[in-house]
């Protein structure tokens, strides 16, 4: 019975996981030995978009391409590259879309102007609306 179940499970697993036939890239599911480097890699991976999945980061996805990108990130970090350099390298290939971390550019400055504007409004509210008379 157990054997049969195993067979069924594998048979079903076959066509489904036939996304691709290769095992995951070496560093897709393997951490770097140096914990400091691994932490750097992890922090970077959490802010990179998985392009074949919807709205997940490559750190949260089982998609093969996310695995390959994790491998790339870890290998490059291990080689001594800076996380921001790796991000820039990916942005050069896929555009700003791949990075969940918007930089202040000509297309994103309003995102950063907004909190400043809100701070001004808050200051105005506290100065002019309150505290005059009670």
């Amino acid at each position: 019975m157990k054997r049969l179940l195993f067979l069924i499970a594998f048979a079903l697993a076959g066509p489904l996981s036939a996304q691709d036939s290769l095992p995951p890239a070496p560093y897709a599911y393997k951490q770097l030995d140096d914990p400091r480097q691994e932490a750097e890699a992890k922090a970077l991976m959490e802010t990179l978009r998985c392009l074949t999945c919807q709205g997940q980061s490559i750190a949260d996805s089982d998609a093969p391409m996310a695995g390959d990108l994790r491998h790339q990130v870890r290998v490059r970090i291990a080689r001594g590259e800076k996380p921001e350099a790796i991000r820039a390298w990916l942005v050069e290939r896929y555009g700003e879309y791949i990075s969940f971390k918007p930089e202040v550019t000509s297309s994103t400055w309003p995102l950063f102007a907004l909190p400043l504007l809100l701070l001004l409004v808050a200051a105005f509210v506290f100065r002019n609306k309150l505290g005059k008379k009670a």
Binding site: A25, M65, L69, R93
Partner: peptide, 8 residues
Amino acid sequence: DLSEVQVG
């Protein structure tokens, strides 16, 4: 095998 060129 590691999608390196694809990403490249």
